[in-house]
């Protein structure tokens, strides 16, 4: 089942065509990595999908409905979770409270002024934290966490809304190599277990080729390959782009 369908997406900045006619789809439970050399248009493409940038042309369809023109928080309501390249958490709250915030939003209880926030959805939050192995750190303030742990908190936060699609921007950026695979394995397990589609960008090719179900390769704003890791590894155009740029 197709969760996300991107069709003929284009975006230009001034005279520079950053993204040109890019199309791809992601199915439920599938992990799609969006890769490409620097300046290939990954970040632009990613921001077009998550609503941070408006495209010049094209369509972003989520479960059959267009996401174009929606504010990020509306996109989230539809069932799209996100993690950021530089983690974004609420520094003045504990780990559990971060997840509780997402749950409160999920249950549409943010405007409540009479209940005590701390007592809401505690078990649900702890269950989510357990899934990302952060249960034992639930009471620590986010401000003091290790970076890898923050990434996992973000994952729990993103899962709170039971999303159908997860957008992860450079999920392992800033982490030690050993940690990277662990985190991505965790994300992959969670996604596959719950049938969540995942779109992620990533620099670390080890991570990409080990965890992605499919890889979409961008170069010069265009999609030059889209297939399984094996297919992409064998793709002549991809080899040229990468070897060319690394040679």
């Amino acid at each position: 089942m197709t969760v996300l369908a991107v069709r003929a997406l284009s975006k230009a900045f001034g005279g520079v065509q950053a993204v040109r006619q890019v199309s791809f789809t992601i199915a439920a439970g599938e992990l799609l990595a969006l890769i490409g050399p620097n300046g290939a248009g990954k970040t632009t493409c990613f921001n077009l999908v998550n609503g941070q940038l408006p495209p010049d042309a094209g369509e972003v369809e989520f479960l059959g409905e267009s996401l174009l023109g929606l504010a990020p928080r509306k996109i989230w309501r539809r069932g799209v979770g996100r993690t950021f390249q530089i983690t974004a958490t609420f520094a003045s709250m504990t780990v559990r409270e971060n997840v509780q915030m997402a749950l409160l939003s999920h249950h549409r209880r943010l405007a409540s002024v009479f209940s005590l926030a701390r007592r809401q959805h505690v078990d649900e939050a702890d269950a989510l934290l357990a899934r990302v192995h952060m249960r034992d750190q639930a009471d620590r303030p986010c401000a003091v966490l290790a970076y890898g742990d923050l990434k996992r908190v973000e994952l729990a936060v993103a899962l709170a809304h039971q999303p159908r699609l997860l957008l992860m921007d450079e999920p392992t950026a800033g982490m030690a190599p050993a940690e990277r695979s662990d985190l991505m394995q965790l994300a992959a397990d969670l996604a596959r277990g719950s049938g969540i589609a995942v779109l992620f960008t990533e620099h670390d090719m080890d991570v990409v080729f080990r965890h992605a179900d499919r890889i979409a390769v961008l170069s010069g704003g265009e999609l030059i390959a889209n297939g399984s890791p094996q297919e992409v590894r064998a793709d002549a155009a991809v080899r040229e782009v990468y070897l060319g740029s690394y040679a």
Binding site: A71, P72, R73, K74, W76, R77, G81, R82, F84, A88, T89, F90, A91, S92, M93, E97, Q100, M101, A102, L104, S105, H106, R109, L110, A111, S112, V113, F114, S115, L116, A117, R118, Q120, V157, A160, H161
Partner: peptide, 25 residues
């Protein structure tokens, strides 16, 4: 300030980006 409303305010202050991304207006 102890209610979800107050927490959401702090959330918006701490990280507008994250708050927006979990549906907080």
């Amino acid at each position: 300030l102890y209610s979800p409303f107050g927490y959401a305010l702090r959330a918006g202050r701490d990280s507008p980006l994250r708050a927006d991304a979990i549906g907080i207006d």
